[in-house]
Amino acid sequence: MSILVNKDTKVIVQGFTGKEGTFHASQCLDYGTKIVGGVTPNKGGTEHLGQPVFNTVSEAVNITGATVSMIFVPPAFVADAVMEAADAGIKLAVIITEGAPVKDMGLAKAYATKKNMLTIGPNCPGIITAEECKIGIMPGFIFKKGRVGLISKSGTLTYEASNQVVKEGFGISTAVGIGGDPIIGLSYKQLLQMFQDDNETDAIVMIGEIGGDLEIQAASYIKENITKPVVAFIAGQTAPKGKRMGHAGAIISGSAGTASEKMEALEFAGVKVVVSPADIGKAVREILTK
C-alpha cells in the first residue's frame, strides 16, 4: 500500500520545460515514476523528455488522466499554478518551489482545500514511495524499501534519517518532506494518520524544527490516535530566539516554538525523542527489535 503515491500514480509536471523541472523530472522518470506529461504555457503540442507538453493543466488531466502534479514554477507564479491544478481536478500537488510569498500560499491552500486537493510543500523535497514512485528532488537511491514511514520538515535531514534507517537494516515505506514554510500543505497530523492506517508501515520517524506549533499539535494527536511507534528528532535545540534559521518558519518568537518545548510534548505523548540526530537510526532499531 504505502501512502499517497505508488507505482501506478500518474504524474504531470508544472514548469516541465524549465531548467529545474527538466532536470528533476528526468531523474524521476529514471526512478520509475509514471510521469505522463507536463504543462508549460505556449509550449503545448510539443514533446519533452519523451512526454507530451500541454498548455493548461486541465488539458493535461483530461488527456493523461494524471492525479498528481509536481510543481516547479518560479515563486511569483506558485499560487497561480497550485490553484490551476486544484481547478483542473488534480488530487495532490507536490510544490517544490522555494520562496513563495506567504500570503499567496495562504490563498492557494484555501482554494485547494475547497477543491479537495491535497498539497505537499512548498519549499520541500517532495514525496517518495521507496522503489516505486519519486515525486520531488530527493536522491532516490537512499530510500531502500522497508516498513518505516518518514515525515520531515527538512530536506537534507530526510535523507540523513533515511540513510540511518537503511544502514540499521530497515527501510522506508513512504517519506514525505512537508517543508518548513509558515503555511504548508499536508502536515504531521494527517500524515501520521495515513501511516497509522497503512499496513505496510510499522513505525514512523518524525523530524521537526523550531518555530510554529505543528509538532505540539502532532504530539497531542499521537497521544490520542497513533498506536504505531514513533521516533522524533527536533532540529534547532541550540538556535537563539528571534533569529530565522534558513526556513521561513524556523524562528523562535517569544517563548513559543522552542525545541525543548516540542521535545517535551512528544515525549509526554510516548514518542521516542532522540537528542542527537545521529541516533535516529539506532532508535528505530531499538523500537522495532524490542
Partner: peptide, 12 residues
Amino acid sequence: NGAGLAMATMDI
C-alpha cells in the same frame, strides 16, 4: 547544506 541539517549540526 540544508537549513534543517545545519540546525541539527549546531545541535550536535
